[in-house]
């Protein structure tokens, strides 16, 4: 009888050990998968860094390309990229901010108009970038007669970045404490005064983050720009000139120019560094903002 109980007890102990063993195995599998998911892309970045860093120098950043980009630098691409980004953001910020204000202050999320605008923004953010390229080509380059130019490129890019900027800004605005709203109402402030004096200043750092995230997204884009901003490697002197963005330069050098890969790698390193800096700034800002809270 006694031995019977004992053996049952031992069997339980054994089961518990088995369970523990099973859970350790699961934990191990999860840890190793997590390691794999970051290490593979990081190895990718490392490989590109190893290929690209030797070519990198101040000279590379400040000279024009020669031999279709096999040698020389990337100055025109840096300038074109900057122009395209400027036009894109100058278009996106006022429209996006207005739309985000409308969504957060004038309508509720489950009103009909709020739902329609929200759904169409969600769909817009899912549209393939090459379709934005087609649209930009048909509308800005052909219909409006802007041709392959920095302006067409920037505007097409703006259409693509718009939903991202609106959604992140809307979140920033919604984070404003209800008490502020109540206080403003009690003081009989007008909506404009509330927005200009209280809402925007209090959400400024979060809107800055939305701005930075959108910049990163615009910087990373290639497919939109091929048929809108074009391929030309000269330094653009006007926004109606065609200009080649950094990402388009990487694509062209690696696919269409035999022997262009070393410089493509160096350009990829420059682009990646820009993206990393943008990410770090956004991260820093959001951290500081959380501290202020």
């Amino acid at each position: 009888m006694v031995s019977n109980i004992k053996s049952k007890y031992a069997a339980n102990e054994l089961n518990l050990n088995k369970a523990k063993f099973k859970h350790n195995i699961i934990a191990l599998a999860i840890w190793s998968t997590a390691l794999l998911t970051v290490s593979l892309p990081l190895m990718m970045l490392w490989t590109i860094g190893v290929e690209g860093f030797p070519q990198l120098s101040l000279q590379f950043l400040l000279t024009e390309p020669t031999h279709a980009g096999r040698s020389g630098g990337i100055l025109p691409m840096l300038i074109s990229t900057l122009w395209i980004l400027c036009i894109c953001l100058v278009t996106v910020v006022p429209i996006g901010l207005g739309c985000a204000l409308y969504l957060s202050e004038c309508v509720t999320a489950d009103s009909t108009i709020g739902r329609i605008v929200g759904l169409s923004l969600d769909v817009l953010s899912g549209v393939p970038s090459i379709v934005f390229g087609l649209f930009g080509y048909a509308v800005f380059a052909i219909q409006l007669g802007l041709g392959f130019s920095i302006l067409s490129g920037g505007l097409s890019l703006a259409c693509m970045v718009l939903p991202l900027f609106i959604r992140t800004t809307e979140q920033a605005l919604r984070a404003c404490p209800t008490a502020y709203r109540r206080a403003a109402e009690a003081l009989d402030l007008s909506l404009f005064a509330f927005v200009a004096r209280i809402l925007l200043p209090s959400a400024a750092s979060n809107i800055a983050i939305a701005f930075i995230i959108s910049t990163g997204r615009a910087l990373a884009e290639t497919a939109v720009l091929i048929f809108t901003a074009g391929y030309v490697t000269r330094i653009p002197s006007h926004w109606s000139d065609s200009g080649r963005a950094l990402s388009v330069h990487i694509y062209d050098l690696s696919m269409n120019v035999p022997g262009g890969q070393p410089n493509a790698a160096a350009t990829a390193v420059v682009l990646m560094l820009l993206i990393i800096v943008i990410n770090l700034v956004a991260h820093r800002l959001s951290k500081r903002w959380q501290l202020l809270e």
Partner: peptide, 16 residues
Amino acid sequence: LLAGIPSVIFGFWGLI
């Protein structure tokens, strides 16, 4: 950060 890597860089890595 990885989510923000430009697609052209993934393509370039694939290529080389």
